[in-house]
């Protein structure tokens, strides 16, 4: 089986305090068949809901973005968080400055861009929006709620 192992050093931004999982990441198919895998990578066409029975044993789910214009990974991320997944959710692949915050809002808490990003541009992007119009996985309350506090 191909070991997809994303090197921990490839992770450029991480919003977690726990230790980074340091073990091989398997494919979606392998994960569904192999009962002891603890890290998996899913592709845009994989059905994230099929991972729900295994969430307890998974410490890392990588969601691959082969091209940034394919937005299926955003739905995968929210589905996993909505199902209660609390492990690391890592965006890998074609991840740019202008995708970071939307990914963060959908529940990603680690980012391994294929091309390293400018640190200060990235920090600006993560912090740009003081408020949001939607409730998603980042726990921020939406404007339509704040108005009625």
């Amino acid at each position: 089986m191909t070991d997809l192992d994303t090197r921990p050093t490839a992770v450029q931004f991480r919003f977690r305090d726990d230790e980074m999982a340091d073990h091989g990441t398997v494919t979606f198919d392998a994960c569904c068949e192999q009962t002891n895998a603890t890290a998996v990578r899913i592709e845009p066409g994989d059905d994230a809901r099929a991972l729900l029975p295994f969430l307890d044993r998974l410490a890392l789910i990588e969601v691959n973005f082969p091209v940034f214009g394919d937005g299926r990974g955003y739905s995968s991320a929210r589905l996993l968080r909505e199902a209660g997944y609390t492990g690391e959710l890592r965006a890998v692949g074609d991840v740019g400055i202008d995708q970071l915050l939307n990914m963060r809002r959908c529940g990603f808490d680690a980012f391994a861009p294929a091309e390293p990003l400018d640190e200060s541009d990235a920090q600006a992007a993560f912090n740009r929006w003081p408020n949001v119009y939607q409730n998603t996985a980042d726990g921020r309350r939406m404007i339509t709620q704040l108005r009625h506090d």
């Binding site: 214009g69 955003y74 809002r105 959908c106 119009y133 998603t136 404007i143 339509t144």
Partner: peptide, 16 residues
């Protein structure tokens, strides 16, 4: 208007 606000910058649906 409710839908305008909801759909503005919706993080899941920017790359449909």
């Amino acid at each position: 208007e409710l839908l305008r606000q909801w759909s503005s910058f919706h993080p899941e649906f920017m790359y449909l």
